[in-house]
């Protein structure tokens, strides 16, 4: 049996009256790549943001490496918020990469990567810089350390953003459409960094429209539709014909993103 890095149980998320996630149950295995796919508005980002605790779920439980994230259930079944220190500790196990990179514009690439090391981890500047530099090297950008985000291409910015998350040594990396904001010729360099990370055994949860990436790198594919998890399984199973009709419909609209290889 593989260990679960993340366990999602009966997760519900509502925004006002709109139910965006309905009773999600999912085990994300340790050291594997788990891709979330589904049509626009199906709730992929919301689910990922719940895992990063950027959104607070309405009910249900998320467990990260065995520790409850944000809330716990009392023996009587009541849901209560965990103390801030505990929430912070559990959140520190995940790193997140956004579609829009979200690099801080007033800091260099090195500044972005070393910021939390200095400010949160209280590392001396020299040590933080050294560690940040090592991460930049890893994503192939050590010669761009002194550049500001405005002086970097989209692909380079996203690689810096990945280095920024990795510098904090998370156990799990969350990617929300990390290549969607990039020109097509720049997606390759980011996907390569993600592939390398997967090869190193990083646990990754990847929201993506890159069906080719999902089919070739993922160990687990989960398909969301209208806030429901329709099915989840290894790519060979999920993409095997006959497919779920909603998945077939969905893949038809993504032929140019690598879905054609599955046709």
């Amino acid at each position: 049996m593989t260990l679960s890095a993340i366990t999602i149980q009966n997760l519900v998320k509502r925004f006002g009256n709109a139910t965006v996630l309905q009773d999600i149950n999912l085990e994300i295995p340790q050291g594997k790549v788990s891709c979330l796919i589904g049509p626009s508005g199906s709730g992929k980002s919301t689910l990922l943001r719940c895992l990063a605790f950027l959104e607070e779920s309405t009910s249900g439980m998320i467990t990260i490496n065995g520790e409850a994230l944000g809330f716990f259930e009392t023996p009587s079944g009541k849901r209560e918020r965990l103390p801030p220190g505990q929430i912070r500790a559990v959140r520190a196990q995940t790193g997140m990469v956004f579609q829009q990179f979200n690099l801080w514009p007033h800091m260099t690439a090195l500044g972005n990567v070393s910021e939390a090391l200095k400010i949160v981890r209280k590392m001396p500047k020299a040590d933080a810089d050294e560690k940040a530099m090592a991460q930049l090297r890893k994503v192939g950008l050590e010669n761009r350390a002194g550049h500001y985000p405005s002086q970097l291409s989209g692909g380079q910015q996203q690689r810096v953003a990945i280095a920024r998350a990795l510098a904090l040594e998370p156990k799990i990396m969350l990617f929300d459409e990390a290549t969607s904001a990039l020109d097509p010729e720049l997606t390759g360099e980011v996907l390569k960094v993600m592939r390398d990370l997967a090869d190193e055994g990083m646990t990754m949860v990847v929201v993506t429209h890159e069906i080719g990436f999902a089919a070739t790198v993922a160990n687990q594919i989960s398909f969301l539709d209208h806030g429901r998890l329709l099915f989840s399984g290894p790519p060979a199973e999920v993409f095997a014909k006959p497919r779920h009709p909603r998945l077939d419909q969905f893949l038809d609209t993504y032929l140019d993103r690598g879905a054609s290889m599955l046709a």
């Binding site: 990063a52 950027l54 520190a92 995940t94 801080w104 400010i119 949160v120 981890r121 904090l168």
Partner: peptide, 12 residues
């Protein structure tokens, strides 16, 4: 908002 969220997820 994303820049604030990036700070939040890095633990600031």
């Amino acid at each position: 908002k994303g820049l604030i969220e990036a700070a939040e997820v890095t633990g600031l």
